[in-house]
């Protein structure tokens, strides 16, 4: 028999105040009702405690804190587009809006890297805090850095820093957008299979299905609140389905053309969020 004790499971207790999460060997976190967090990394002689503190903060506490502060979390990264879209630029001095990128984070980060090359700024990696404001879905920035697998970074010629002592995840230096941005559309990113086209705009039922999977459930959703009944959940779903959706199928050899297609799609005048009912009752 081994002398090494069997590790216990990570736990997240949302029945206590503050919420308490423990990850054996890594540390624990608390997340209070007002969203304030406390990070308690365990010490490990083989790893800088700053790395463990950041892992607990960005990998766990930040998401729960956003939930407690009333945000919904969209299951995808968000970037501020390089240029305002056609309907945005009709407003004088309009800032460009946000594009949410769903899909495997391993694939999404390729598109992020390409968009950054063209002047985009990252609002959030992996998941994005969002709120409805004046009938428009608005993406808020989060602090966690953009991560990429070292092999992929090397292939793309990107530099990064290891986030943990024993990992292949690198933190990339990318420009960040620090302000909330209205969401202009959602693209689901995947690697392109034979016979697939780079970009397909979704319509009808496809949009409805895509909207159904956009928001996180489970631990990354506050259980109490206005949206706990089926009626308001359906209303949320319908509002989300008003966004423009597309499937972006990429290939590392054609990433420039693929992202051209994405930007071409989102720039079309008729690709715009349909303003939803902006009554106060619909706002959070």
């Amino acid at each position: 028999m081994s002398d090494v004790p069997t590790p216990s499971d990570p736990t997240l207790d949302r029945e206590v105040e503050p919420w308490l999460g423990t990850f054996p060997g890594l540390g624990s976190i608390t997340v209070a009702q007002d969203g304030s967090v406390e990070i308690m990394p365990e010490s490990d002689p083989e790893e800088d405690s700053t790395m463990r503190e950041r892992a607990l903060r960005f990998g766990w506490a930040e998401g729960l804190s956003l939930v407690r502060r009333g945000f919904s979390l969209a299951s995808g990264a968000a970037v501020q587009l390089p240029e305002p879209t056609a309907h945005e630029s009709s407003d004088d001095g309009a800032e460009s809006g946000a594009l949410i990128l769903t899909g495997d984070p391993h694939d999404v980060v390729i598109v992020i890297a390409e968009l950054v090359e063209r002047g985009a700024k990252v609002i959030a990696d992996r998941f994005t805090p969002v709120q409805w404001e004046q009938g428009r879905l608005t993406a808020y920035p989060r602090a966690a850095p953009v991560l990429m697998a070292s092999r992929r970074a090397k292939k793309l010629g990107l530099q990064g820093r290891k986030v943990r002592a024993d990992t292949d995840a690198l933190e990339l230096d990318v420009p960040r957008c620090e302000q909330p941005r209205r969401v202009e559309g959602v693209a689901n990113v995947g690697m392109r299979r034979p016979h697939e086209t780079p970009l397909t705009a979704l319509a009808g039922r496809q949009k409805f299905e895509a909207a159904a999977g956009l928001m996180f459930a489970g631990a990354l959703r506050e259980t109490s609140g206005d949206n706990s009944d089926a009626g308001s959940a359906m209303a949320d779903h319908l509002r989300l389905a008003n966004l423009p959706y597309s499937n972006l199928r990429i290939n590392s050899d054609t990433i420039h053309e693929d992202v051209d297609a994405l930007l071409g799609w989102i720039a079309q005048p008729d690709v715009a969020p349909t303003p939803a009912d902006s009554s106060a009752a619909a706002e959070r």
Binding site: L12, G21, G25, R164, A169, G218
Partner: peptide, 16 residues
Amino acid sequence: LLPAFGIDPRWLDRDE
């Protein structure tokens, strides 16, 4: 792990 616990596993190490 992300929806179940709110943990983004990309921040874990290989053992974790």
